[in-house]
Design a protein around this nucleic acid. Structure first.
Length: 421
DNA sequence: TCTGGGGTCCTAGGACCC
DNA sequence: TCTGGGGTCCTAGGACCC
């Protein structure tokens, strides 16, 4: 069996750990620049605030219903997520961390008569007691079914208290018949529409489709999904692999026209991406840069250029990468447009120990030591202690974060304070 | 006024090889 | 009139995930 464990309303639950007054109240957490709702408490969901809702469109409802609105605090969420994963890792020797708030736990070889409800309950108790986070647990023979089991655990918490076990063909069939096809893991908006057009409305309907048709219309993923839904493992566990692309992209608070300001942004994005690249011990062979105007302002002229530069050699040096990034910017920048978003993407990533050397070009060997020194200082004394001269010292580009909680677990100055009465 | 960020995988088609 | 067969690699774009 495979368990999918996920933290309920993850970011909201984490905020509640440090501010219990948020419990039992509608709460939403917003994306960068306080843009869209990316996490909602059950109370907020009940008010009809959808996932990804732009905050300004729900302003009236938020005021009227006294919805607590928070800016996202990613360093805090990443730290708590790490602790949650450590706790979960105690339950099995084979765990796949799927996202910041979910993990697949493999219970292979535990036998038919193992009591999965009990282990599910134990996981829930452990997470509440050890960390204060509410989780849902879904058990099933395959990953796609475990996702469905997890949905049921959330949807019908009275059935065994947020644990759902799909362990017999009869239970699986019943669950599939009750699951709309659009809610299946791997069916997005497009495929949902195409399936409904041929009268496939539930996950069960999908398993009744013939293989050749699924292969032709939905590719290999289409047939794999069918068998996964029937309880045969067709969707394999993902290995832990280094990333194949590393990006740093941001929307700006205001639209931007000045090329020098964009140069600074691109340099800063490159520095961040390169730092992540070095952290996984890799080098990049290509760097892509893009600009975007504001797509929501249709009356304004639109321009969304991008350019991918092959670097002359595999490198993780911020200095080298930024040279290419700036060249790319020179190529795509056109004056007169108001840019709303920009980004840098590192691609063609290869590990440090499998580096293709070039005959005519080489990395400056001094860069490696320099980067190591910079990374060491920044990791010890805080992000952005050492930056490149082209980078602004942040103040100017501060995101809109009107309701940011403290970095309770990642910054000494933000530790929780207790008062003695 | 205001609308996120960071990833993965698959496929078809082109270009190339012997 | 008529023009093989069997591959690999790369890329852009689409679709999906949280």
């Amino acid at each position: 069996m495979i368990a999918l464990v996920d933290v309920n309303n993850c970011y909201v639950s984490i905020e509640r750990l440090f501010d219990p007054s948020l419990c039992n109240k509608p709460v939403i957490v917003l994306s960068n620049n306080d843009g869209c709702a990316v996490a909602r408490s059950n109370e907020a969901k009940a008010l009809g605030i959808p996932m990804g809702a732009p905050a300004f469109q729900y302003k009236d409802l938020i005021i009227q219903e006294k919805v607590n609105v928070l800016s996202s605090n990613y360093p805090l969420y990443a730290d708590i997520s790490g602790r949650a994963m450590n706790l979960l890792a105690e339950f099995t020797d084979n765990m796949e961390i799927y996202s910041i708030d979910e993990a697949f736990l493999y219970f292979d070889g535990f036998g038919k008569h193992f009591n999965y409800y009990q282990i599910g309950e134990k996981i829930r108790r452990t997470m509440i007691k050890g960390l204060g986070l509410p989780v849902s647990v879904g058990f099933a023979p395959t990953r796609t079914l475990a996702k469905i089991a997890n949905r049921f655990a959330k949807k019908y918490p009275h059935i065994g208290g947020s644990v759902c076990v799909l362990d017999t063909p009869a239970k699986i069939e019943k669950a599939l018949k009750k699951t709309e096809i659009g809610d299946v893991w791997g069916i997005g908006r497009r495929k949902n529409l195409r399936l409904q057009a041929v009268n496939v409305n539930t996950a069960w309907d999908y398993t009744r489709m013939n293989d050749a048709y699924l292969r032709r219309e939905f590719g290999v993923l289409g047939t794999r999904m069918k068998y996964d839904l029937l309880g045969e493992r067709a969707v394999q566990q993902a290995d832990i692999k280094p990333k194949k692309s590393i990006a740093c992209t941001r929307s700006f608070k205001d639209m931007m026209m000045d090329k020098n300001e964009l140069k600074e942004r691109i340099a800063t994005f490159t520095a961040t991406a390169a730092e992540n690249l070095r952290q996984q011990g890799s080098n990049a062979n290509m760097i892509g840069v893009f600009l975007q105007t504001n797509r929501f302002r249709e009356e304004m002229p639109q321009y969304n250029p991008s350019f991918i530069f092959p670097t002359d050699f595999a490198t993780s040096s911020t200095i080298e990468l930024n040279k290419f990034a700036q060249k790319a910017l020179d190529i795509i920048f056109k004056p007169g447009y108001r840019y709303k978003k920009a980004g840098v993407i590192l691609m063609g990533i290869t590990p440090d120990n499998a580096r293709q050397t070039k005959l005519f070009y080489a990395d400056n060997p001094k860069h490696k030591d320099l980067m190591q020194a910079i990374d060491a200082i920044n990791s010890k004394l805080g992000r952005d202690t050492v930056t490149f001269a082209i980078q602004d010292r942040k103040d100017k580009w501060k995101m809109r974060q009107d309701n940011l909680s403290q970095r309770y677990t990642t910054n000494w100055d933000d530790l929780v304070r207790l008062k003695c009465f």
